[in-house]
């Protein structure tokens, strides 16, 4: 558990959380591993889990079929995420379907958190919920600013 908490402390998504609050989040984490090339989630799938990258790199792709046929169409590659980044968290905010496909670009280890369980925790502990949602908003802002640079 402490290993998970140490990892969570390194994620801006959990910036400002107390040790006790981090323990509550850590209790919801389960481990997952992916080989390079594995599809982790598909566009239009239901958004039931969000992911925290422990190691490795993933590609967020808007149109996987076109991207695979013509890799030079890098515009299909929305963003590349590495250690300490989260993905799938938009589903936490809007509960909409997946907006992109995510593929492991290298062997990748992640923690997975069930969206329903996490939202229940946010409702139960509203300070935790407020901080995480504010941090997610900042993270999405960071990604938009990054997108504007590439």
């Amino acid at each position: 558990m402490s290993q998970v908490k140490d990892f969570l402390k390194r994620l801006d998504m959990f910036n400002g959380l107390t040790d006790q609050e981090l323990s509550k989040v850590a209790a919801l984490c389960s481990e997952a591993s992916y080989k390079a090339g594995d599809t982790i989630l598909n566009i239009k799938d239901p958004a039931d889990i969000f992911y925290l990258i422990r190691s490795g790199t993933v590609h967020i792709i808007t149109n996987p079929e076109v991207f695979e046929a013509k890799p030079e169409l890098a515009g299909m590659l929305l963003v590349i995420l590495g250690e300490g980044q989260s993905f799938g968290e938009m589903g936490l905010v809007d509960r909409g379907a997946r907006s992109a496909t995510v593929r492991a670009a290298s062997d990748t280890d992640a923690y997975c958190i069930n969206c329903d369980e996490f939202l229940a925790l946010c409702n139960e502990d509203t300070r935790l919920g407020f901080l995480v949602m504010r941090n997610i908003a900042a993270d999405l802002s960071f990604k938009l600013r990054y997108r504007n640079l590439i």
């Binding site: 790199t57 890098a74 590659l77 600013r145």
Partner: peptide, 21 residues
């Protein structure tokens, strides 16, 4: 301090990305 860094290579959308270091 933890640095959330976006690495950008001008003209190359296929490399770079975001990571915490």
């Amino acid at each position: 301090m933890i640095y959330k860094v976006s690495f950008v290579v001008p003209g190359r959308r296929d490399v770079g990305g975001i990571q915490n270091i």
